[in-house]
Every structure is written in structure tokens, then in C-alpha cells.
């Protein structure tokens, strides 16, 4: 693979019918490019969790993916409420998801911990009232 492959997605807020579309497409693309199946799975899980968070907690956003042969970088940017306490938000089981969202099977409070677990680098840049940008990196070892 010579050049960087770039993907861009718009994610609409509170729309659970489309949630998961971006991560699904990223997964297919990585598979087609011949990346290792476990790397593909790790990236897909991490992006899915972050994508769902944008839908549930931040009224949507945009996702940009850079695929290089040695590293997958995903930047998820939203204009949601921001995360007041990142350390608390990272705790397994912590969730502010409303009841209607929990009824769909979300809100386990495992999203951010899962993202951390399945990526090599995770950076959360958040400003209250402005939005959150999450940058993920998975290296192809």
C-alpha cells in the first residue's frame, strides 16, 4: 500500500438506524486492503463505540480516517456538551445514557474503556459546551 487511504463520514445525532454505518464501512475497507483480521476487529470495535457515543451523547459529528500501511488513525469530532470529568467517564460501568437508550442495549458504560482497550493510542480533547474530539491510533505491527 503506497498512499494514505482517507475516509470521511457524517454521523447524525440520535439516529440509531444509521449508527454503526461508518464503523461497518471502515471494517470493510480495512478487510479489502488486506489488514490482519484482529486489527480490523479492534479498529471496528473502537470506532463503533466512539461513533455510538457521538450519536447518544453529542448529537452527531464527523469521522475522519487515515489508513496507512503501518497505522490507522481515526479522528471523531463532535459539537456536543463535552465531557466534564474524563477520568470518571473512563470508568467501567459509568454512564449517563438515558433510559430509552439503555432499552436498546446501549449505556453499559463500557464504551470508552473498550476504545482504550482496543487501540494503541487514545486521546480525548474536550471542552464543555464546545465539543469533544477523540483521536485513536492502531498500529499495524
Amino acid at each position: 500500500m503506497q498512499d494514505t487511504v482517507k475516509l470521511h463520514f457524517d454521523v447524525s445525532g440520535n439516529d440509531f438506524t444509521c449508527a454503526g454505518e461508518a464503523s461497518g464501512k471502515i471494517k470493510r475497507t480495512l478487510k479489502q486492503l488486506g489488514f490482519d483480521i484482529s486489527l480490523v476487529r479492534n479498529v471496528a470495535i473502537a470506532v463503533y463505540e466512539a461513533e455510538i457515543n457521538m450519536v447518544i451523547h453529542a448529537d452527531g459529528g464527523v469521522i475522519d480516517v487515515d489508513i496507512d500501511s503501518d497505522c490507522i488513525t481515526v479522528v471523531l469530532k463532535d459539537r456536543g456538551p463535552g465531557i466534564p470529568d474524563i477520568e470518571l467517564a473512563m470508568k467501567e460501568g459509568y454512564s449517563t445514557a438515558p433510559e430509552n437508550v439503555r432499552m436498546l442495549g446501549f449505556g453499559a458504560g463500557m464504551g470508552l474503556p473498550n476504545i482504550k482497550k482496543y487501540t494503541d493510542e487514545m486521546n480525548i480533547d474536550t471542552v464543555i459546551g464546545v465539543g469533544t474530539t477523540i483521536t485513536l491510533k492502531v498500529y499495524n505491527k
Binding site: F16, G20, S23, K27, R41, I45, Y48, I52, L104, F106
Partner: peptide
């Protein structure tokens, strides 16, 4: 017991 659209997404992701 989750038969909503998100279950399908998860099934695809988890293979």
C-alpha cells in the same frame, strides 16, 4: 433478546 437494528450492527462487527 435484543432484536433491534443495532444488534445487527454488533453481529456484523463481532462476526
Amino acid at each position: 433478546v435484543m432484536g433491534n437494528i443495532n444488534s445487527i450492527g454488533v453481529a456484523v462487527l463481532a462476526d
